[in-house]
Amino acid sequence: MAIKNLKDLYLDQLKDLYSACKQSMPMVTELGRAAKSRDLSEALIAGNQGIARGMEVLSELCNRHGADPTGEHCRGMEGLIIEAKKHAIETEYADEDAQDAAIITQYQRMMHYAIAGYGCVRSFANRLELDSDAAALQECLDQTWEGDRHMTKIAEGGVNMAAVDGR
Rank of each mutant, 00 (worst) to 15 (best):
A2P: 13
S24V: 04
A136G: 05
N160E: 06
D95S: 05
E56T: 12
M151W: 08
L141K: 09
C120E: 11
R149H: 07
K36G: 13
G79Q: 10
M27W: 03
W145N: 12
G158A: 01
E139L: 14
E92T: 11
L58F: 14
V28Q: 14
A35V: 05
P69H: 05
R53D: 15
L137R: 09
R53C: 10
Q108M: 13
D142Q: 12
A155S: 15
P26L: 04
P69A: 03
D133I: 00
M25Y: 09
S123L: 13
K36Y: 07
M151L: 13
D165T: 10
T91R: 14
E56K: 15
T105A: 11
A84C: 06
L14I: 14
M27D: 00
Y18P: 08
E90C: 02
Q23D: 00
C140R: 09
E139W: 12
G117I: 10
R122P: 07
R53E: 15
A94Y: 09
G32N: 10
G76E: 11
M161W: 15
L40A: 04
R38H: 10
D12Y: 15
G50M: 01
D16G: 08
I89Q: 05
T91L: 03
L9V: 01
D148M: 06
L14M: 13
Y93C: 02
L40G: 04
T105I: 06
Q106N: 08
Y93D: 03
K7I: 09
H150L: 11
A88C: 00
F124H: 06
Y107R: 05
L44C: 08
D97K: 06
R75E: 12
N63G: 05
K36L: 02
A88D: 01
E92K: 14
H87T: 01
P26G: 02
T105P: 06
A20I: 03
M151Q: 07
K22A: 12
L128Q: 05
F124K: 00
T29H: 14
E139D: 11
A136V: 08
Q49K: 15
A20Y: 00
Q99I: 03
T91H: 09
L80G: 01
G76M: 08
L31I: 00
P26M: 01
L141A: 06
E83R: 05
M27F: 02
H150C: 04
V57N: 06
Y118D: 03
C62D: 10
Q143I: 13
G50P: 04
N5P: 13
Y18D: 01
E78N: 06
A84Q: 02
A125Q: 06
Y93V: 02
Q23F: 03
Y107I: 00
M111A: 14
L141G: 05
D133S: 05
L6V: 12
V164C: 11
Y10Q: 06
N63L: 12
A67M: 07
A116H: 09
A46I: 04
Q138E: 15
A94K: 15
S41H: 15
Q138H: 14
L58M: 13
E156V: 04
A135T: 13
A67W: 06
V164A: 13
V28D: 12
Y10E: 07
